[in-house]
Design a protein around this nucleic acid. Structure first.
Length: 691
DNA sequence: CGGTTAGGGGTTTTT
DNA sequence: CCCCTAACCG
């Protein structure tokens, strides 16, 4: 049974009485085993599994814990446990209340936000200071939703009192953004939590025990969500030294004030580290001890035997560093997937990946340009999104931007045309238009300038006659649009054919099969593979193009495989948004950001680019303490061997680097770290104004 | 000119 | 991938 493998401190935590329990679990102390043991304990004592809620930071983590429980309990019981990330669980509940919920990627919502922002004319407002850019304002708004429960204006002005004069305009943008989201039927990640919180304020979903993993990274909103759940018992597991999500509103106060908020709380500490060797742990501790100790803890080494001291690798040039690491990985006897290369920023990944490829070592990346960011996959998902939610203008715009001569503005007009042709029903407007006149596009222009008014119908009937299109496309009112050209009409014809083929189908796999074999998609494949097969000289290398084409087809096939588990199209599309980033492709050496490495462990770890400015990141650093925690997380991933590396110079960018202060703190570089003169920081957060 | 579209150069971290 | 700038259109 899972409980019999626990040590004394883990067991006393796992069998704690119902109530408020906080488990301080340092890196590698068997946190997962303790949570699994806790659930086993609850089940053994007869708790109804459907009254247990397990909240984790990634869906993968939840899946692993559930899988471990299935080794000891019948699947029928374990599957009743409610589990997943805050977002996944909220989505599951909301889907019952709002079946048409359409989850959107943050980047999409940012684009929507920007388009609203850009309608405002700040120059005309004669402002005494430059307003924040759309991007920065969006990021702040998003952070606010996670970090605060008060009004946006209050929260914002506390940070930037001088923006008082623009606050009304900011609020106006935010309000319009909220309205547009509802009009388009969109929900953001934050909306999932916000909406379920609102629901819970007047309704109850009762749980006997709620377990929260990675409690140190819960933000204020998630904290409030736990509060509104009001479970009979709470079991929170975390380590304040591993709190690394401040940028997402993670509130270390949640864990720091647990025992004052719940005076009856039990606090358990897991002290014995079974993961890393003594020298690795002592290095980690030396550094992290410079941060304030919130709860007392002292790590004890659970592993004995032969050890390798952590090694500092210092190089003269950036690429020499990557190439040398690739060589060292090539010559080690450890299997590739037992090795991780960990970095602070994704910008390190390309160089490492290229160097590994050079010597023929396979590698996989999590984050960065993921599977779902690939254009060929995004296109298919946009098609599906549009089928699920025909109000999804963003998805439509992305699809039609592939037609040559069509950009985002014209694509948007086309969408409005279809809505008009179908009396508000998009699909109707595409397939069976009831209005055959163009809508009045940009009425202000027409009225003020008297332009374009009578251009609308020019050549509409005859312009595309030679294309030999089927009658229903040839007679479609979209062809009357003055700015559609031949390629656009051909694209529309293929789009029309596909929509006609899949309009009645609801099964995700069948739709994908039709879509991937459609003429529309083969056009996309051709365009993308030609682009990717192009050499620096501009010529297309047929071999390279063929390879790109095969890669695209393989990816599309993978998406099709994923879709087979889903019966309902909407759930499939949302699942791809919700869990998409967690999928990593292929086999080989693991390339990870520190954030992505959380919760994982590897026999051999390389932490690279440990130079001042990059790690710690000095550009937009929230605090040196947080950067130190990031360093702590990175090094405590290592079980047996730890390499810390840096290069003193980047000859491509011509930048000199100094060793990271954490290497001084670790005692690997002699002497106390001296902070360099702060360079004039480029202000990126303010928008350019003409004055 | 104004509004778009298309292509080139720099990047913090995530559900 | 996001921001900027150079061509392009009516």
């Amino acid at each position: 049974m899972p409980l019999s493998t626990l040590n004394a401190e883990q067991l006393s935590a796992a069998t704690a009485p119902l109530g408020q329990n906080l488990i301080i679990a340092s890196a590698g102390t068997g946190k997962t085993s303790t949570i699994v043991g806790r659930i086993a304990h609850l089940l053994q004592n007869g708790m109804d599994p459907s009254k247990i809620l397990l909240l984790t930071f990634t869906n993968k983590a939840a899946g692993e814990m559930i899988a471990r429980l299935e080794r000891y309990f019948p699947k029928k019981i374990v599957s009743k446990i409610e589990s997943g990330t805050f977002h996944a669980v909220s989505y599951r509940w909301l889907k019952e209340l709002h079946p048409n919920l359409a989850l959107k990627q943050p980047s999409e919502l940012k684009t929507l936000f920007r388009s609203i922002y850009e309608k405002r004319n700040f120059e005309r407002m004669n402002l005494p200071l430059a307003p924040f850019s759309a991007t920065y304002l969006y990021e702040m708004y998003s952070l606010y939703q996670n970090a605060s429960l008060e009004g946006f204006d209050e929260w914002f002005l506390e940070k930037y009192p001088e923006h008082d004069v623009i606050m009304d305009a900011y609020m106006d943008i935010v309000q319009e953004f909220e309205k547009e989201k509802i009009d388009y039927g969109f929900a953001s990640f934050n909306d999932l939590l916000l909406r379920i919180k609102t629901y819970l304020e007047s309704n109850t979903i009762h749980f006997e025990e709620v377990l929260v993993d990675e409690y140190q990274d819960t933000n204020t909103l998630q904290g409030a969500l736990i509060d509104t759940l009001r479970p009979r018992s709470l079991f929170c597991v975390g380590d304040y030294d591993q709190s690394i999500y401040a940028f997402n509103g993670a509130n270390i106060e949640n864990i720091a004030t647990f025992s004052t908020r719940y005076p009856e709380a039990n606090v358990f500490t897991l002290k014995t580290n079974y993961r890393s060797t003594a020298p690795i742990l002592s290095l980690a501790n030396r550094v992290i001890e410079r941060n304030e100790r919130i709860y007392p803890k002292k790590l004890e080494v659970g592993r004995h035997g032969k050890t390798h001291p952590p090694r500092l690798l210092m190089y003269n040039d950036l690429f020499e560093q990557y190439q040398s690491i690739a060589q060292s990985i090539k010559h080690t006897h450890v299997p590739n997937d037992n090795i991780a290369v960990i970095f602070r920023n994704n910008s390190s990944a390309d160089g490492i990946e290229a160097s590994l490829r050079e010597v023929g070592i396979p590698c996989k990346r999590k984050g960065g340009t993921s599977f779902f960011d690939a254009k060929e996959i995004k296109f298919l998902l946009d098609l599906l999104s549009l089928l699920v939610n025909p109000k999804d203008m963003m998805a439509f715009i992305h699809i039609f931007e592939y037609a040559s001569g069509v950009g985002s503005a014209l694509s948007k007009e086309f969408f409005q045309c279809f809505l008009h042709f179908g009396n508000g029903n998009f699909m109707q407007g595409v397939l069976y238009p009831v209005n055959s006149e163009l809508p009045n596009l940009k009425p202000n222009k027409n009225v003020q300038l008297g332009l374009f008014d009578d251009d609308h119908e020019i050549g509409s009937a005859t312009r595309f006659k030679h294309l030999d299109l089927p009658g229903n496309v040839y007679g479609h009112p979209l062809l009357k649009h003055p700015r559609i050209i031949q390629d656009g009409v051909k694209f529309f014809n293929d789009f029309y054919t596909l929509m006609n083929d899949i309009r009645a189908e609801r099964d995700p796999a069948k739709i994908l099969r039709t879509a991937t074999s459609s003429k529309l998609y083969s056009g996309i494949i051709d365009m993308l593979s030609t682009q990717r097969g192009r050499l620096k000289s501009g010529e297309v290398d047929e071999e390279k193009k063929k390879l790109a084409r095969e890669r695209i087809l393989r990816k599309a096939g993978l998406l099709l495989d994923l879709s087979r588990q889903y019966k309902e199209l909407g759930r499939f599309v949302n699942a791809m948004v919700l869990g998409g980033g967690e999928l990593s492709e292929g086999e080989g050496v693991n390339l990870l950001t520190v954030h992505a490495s959380k919760g994982l462990e590897f026999p051999e770890v390389y932490v690279v680019d440990l130079v001042d400015g990059r790690f710690p990141n000095r550009k937009m650093m929230s605090s040196i303490e947080e950067e130190r925690r990031l360093f702590y997380v990175a090094v405590t991933r290592a079980k047996d061997k730890l390499y810390l590396s840096l290069a003193k110079y980047d000859k491509v960018k011509k930048i000199d680097y100094k060793p990271s202060q954490f290497l001084h703190e670790a005692g690997l570089v002699k002497g106390e770290f001296v902070e360099p003169e702060p360079k004039k920081a480029r202000k990126k957060k303010t928008a350019e104004t003409d004055q």
